[in-house]
């Protein structure tokens, strides 16, 4: 554990809580891509299956359970409780265009051809692109509410901080994981355009 890893995790947690609270408080999921949220739920589910097979630390287990729980709660709010406010017409990105190629890649490029390892690799690859339906939706409607941009900022910041974590771990622990690093770089790059808009406009974004 180092400062980049910890702040990265907290940034990730902040993003998830911000989104959940926004939907809950406004009783609306307008402007939120349900498809991105389904993909994140899939990411956490396939990555944290090791909850059932190995215990690493209380911190690790707690965070995993919170992430998974919040992901499913968010999907529930969007598709069940506040379904009437869900803007499905603008959430038209095809999930299979991400899930199928990512699944194929996970089978081809992984550390070990075993069930759990392939699912873990799948989750890493999928996470790197899971935000695309949300970004696509914003580009389609041409706007995003302020709170939605805060959500995206923390979500993007989290993986950027993980990049520093991996640099730290490489220098001080000699540890590196090429799959996580490359996917993390792709993920962070996808947010760069958004970061620019967030910093220069600071408020809700309208393109």
């Amino acid at each position: 554990m180092n400062i980049f890893r910890l702040t990265g995790d907290l940034s990730h947690l902040a993003a998830i809580i911000i989104l959940l609270l926004k939907i809950w408080k406004t009783r609306s999921c307008a402007g939120i891509s349900g498809k991105s949220q389904i993909l994140f739920a899939l990411v956490f589910t396939t990555r944290y299956l090791d909850l059932l097979t190995s215990f690493i630390s209380l911190y690790n287990t707690t965070m995993k359970v919170i992430y998974i729980g919040c992901a499913y709660a968010t999907v529930y709010l969007i598709y069940m409780k506040f379904k009437a406010t869900y803007d499905g017409n603008h959430d038209s990105f095809r999930m299979e265009f991400l899930v199928v190629p990512v699944g194929g890649l996970a089978c081809l490029v992984n550390h070990d051809f075993s069930f759990l390892e392939i699912l873990w690799t799948f989750s890493i690859y999928l996470e790197s692109v899971a935000i695309l339906p949300q970004l696509f939706m914003i580009s389609k409607t041409g706007e995003a509410e302020t709170i939605t941009t805060h959500y995206l900022f923390f979500l993007g910041l989290y993986r950027a901080l993980y990049l520093f974590n991996w640099i730290w771990r490489f220098y001080f622990e000699g540890f590196f994981d090429m799959i996580a690093i490359v996917a993390g770089m792709v993920q962070t790059i996808l947010y760069c355009d958004f970061f620019y808009l967030y910093v220069t406009k600071g408020q809700g974004i309208s393109l």
């Binding site: 890893r5 995790d9 990730h12 990555r47 090791d50 190995s54 690493i56 630390s57 690790n60 965070m63 995993k64 992430y67 550390h111 070990d112 075993s114 390892e117 873990w120 993980y162 974590n165 994981d177 996580a180």
Partner: peptide, 10 residues
């Protein structure tokens, strides 16, 4: 991470 490594990162 090697396959048998515990996956500490989230």
């Amino acid at each position: 991470a090697e396959a048998d490594d515990d996956k500490d990162e989230l």
